[in-house]
Simulated assay, not measured.
Amino acid sequence: MDLEDYRAARHHHLVEVAAGLGVPADRAAEVVDRVIEAQRRRILRSADPDEVVVPALRDEVLGRPSRGPTLAIAALVVVVAAAFAVPLLTAGPDPEEVERKAGTMPSLVGLTSEEAVVALRSIGIASRIDPVPQCDPAGQVLGSVPPAGGAVRPEQVVTVVATATPAWTCPRDTVQRDEAWAFLRFLVSGSGRPRLAREVRLYVDGQPAGTADGRQPATAPDWRWRVRDPVVASVVRPVANDLGQPVVSITRGPLPPVTCAVPTPRPSGVGPDPTRVVLTADADPREDGQGEVCQLTIDLFEDVAGAIAVVSVVIPGGTGLGPPPWVRTRDDLDDLDGRGAADGG
């Protein structure tokens, strides 16, 4: 294929791929041009130059295992460090400190790939990113090698497996997938910020569980007690699969009448097709008494403006008899207020 014909036809797409891998927008075109020039001879001989250029672009941006800090990581490390307030080691960590801290692989659920690199570096663990093309937004951590809970040798470079922009066409649900991942990060790591309504109605195990302020972080009491704590406790445990963390699946459409043996909420004032996020934590999941495989499920219902106005969470192992003990409903709070008044409080 003629080099200039290929450049004219695919340059814009390749710039989008580079940006999805973390290259700053004002540098993406420059990086793409450099990769095309470096692969000139292979492009001329190839029947499908994308099979040459896209892997070369990923190597250029993300680096091979033997390379040092990569372009994407170097460009974003200051931003990520500020967001997480994670101290970066400007010099190599003390060998004894590395040996002490690099004993067990931590969970990376709810981080982006760049955030994971920074977090691991802060505890003396070197890492590289292994991009896996998916239709989910680029840079979402899928797991690690070794998996969470696995042993890490002091000299080992662990692999962070993360989503990357695919070469194929994806379904037209990009916005919903972006929002779903942002909500997961909002809960677990605090780095995501989906579009939330001012007042978000909450359901836990099929029952109303009060409201939360959509302007507040997930560490605010209303979010934390009802949703964040039980979700985090469930998803950060090491999982018995190759990557050590739950497999995230995102769908959009009508919901089944029952989820994990409890009725699926049908809230008013929201659209009929919510986004469902399922986190599969079991390599060999067991069916419940009704033949349903029960996993942690988060349903995100949007209002007419497209903001998430209702969040429904089902925790595996729930009783199906309402919110678990850590959830304080409005009725509970009213009862407490009544008792306090009766006691003269």
Rank of each mutant, 00 (worst) to 15 (best):
Y203M: 01
P133I: 02
A164V: 02
I123D: 04
D173N: 14
A167Y: 11
R185S: 05
A182K: 12
A212H: 08
R201Y: 12
D205M: 00
S122P: 12
R201L: 08
G150K: 01
V152H: 06
T112D: 11
A126R: 13
R121K: 09
V109I: 13
V158W: 13
V158S: 01
V227F: 09
A151H: 04
S127L: 09
R193W: 11
Q216I: 05
Q216H: 08
P171N: 13
S191D: 10
G192H: 04
V141L: 09
A167G: 14
C170L: 05
P137H: 02
R195C: 06
A218C: 06
P208K: 01
A218L: 10
V175L: 07
Q207E: 15
T165W: 04
A240L: 12
A151N: 06
Q134G: 09
G214S: 11
R177F: 06
Y203P: 04
V200Q: 05
R198Y: 05
T174K: 07
D178C: 05
L184D: 14
A116R: 02
C170Y: 14
D130K: 10
W225V: 08
A233R: 13
V175G: 06
V236D: 01
S234M: 10
Q134Y: 00
D173E: 13
G210C: 11
I125D: 08
T159S: 13
I125A: 08
P154N: 07
P221K: 06
L142Q: 15
V200T: 10
L120D: 10
P146F: 04
V141I: 06
T165Y: 01
I123L: 13
Q176N: 14
R121I: 06
I129Y: 00
R128A: 09
